[in-house]
Amino acid sequence: MSLFAFTKTVLGSMVSKPATRMYPFEVREAFPGTRGSIAIEIEKCIYCTLCARKCPTSAIVVNKAARSWEIDRLRCISCRACVEACPKDCLSQLTSYSPAVAIKGGKDFFHHPAPKVAAAPGAAPAQG
């Protein structure tokens, strides 16, 4: 008969520190390689739409004419395909996840008006 076999483990964990943490007061540190949410440096974007075409869930919509780039956080599966595809390295993947979305279909919209970019190439051409 083996009853109370689990007693040792159970009592042990009763006196030691819990394995859970008091989220959101205590946030776990992400690993450097964690695939979190996608971030964009919109100033560097050339609106080539490569990321939108590579995106398996069509979460990214790029509008070349309006110079806008938007991502649907709920569609994004954090697969990193866009980051790998981006020719200008303006996309990056954060280690943190995107915050909870309150509105369905809410998209993160990035827009960089043309005049500023016209000035930018001269200002910082080295960091392409």
Binding site: F6, G33, R35
Partner: peptide, 27 residues
């Protein structure tokens, strides 16, 4: 027993996340 099984699983998931970037969807 359920909680303790998952407590250990969490450590395995940590290794997975560290090496692949995802916890269950390795990618």
């Amino acid at each position: 027993l359920f909680m303790h099984s998952w407590r250990i699983r969490e450590k395995i998931l940590d290794i997975i996340e560290e090496t692949t970037g995802g916890r269950v969807i390795f990618g």
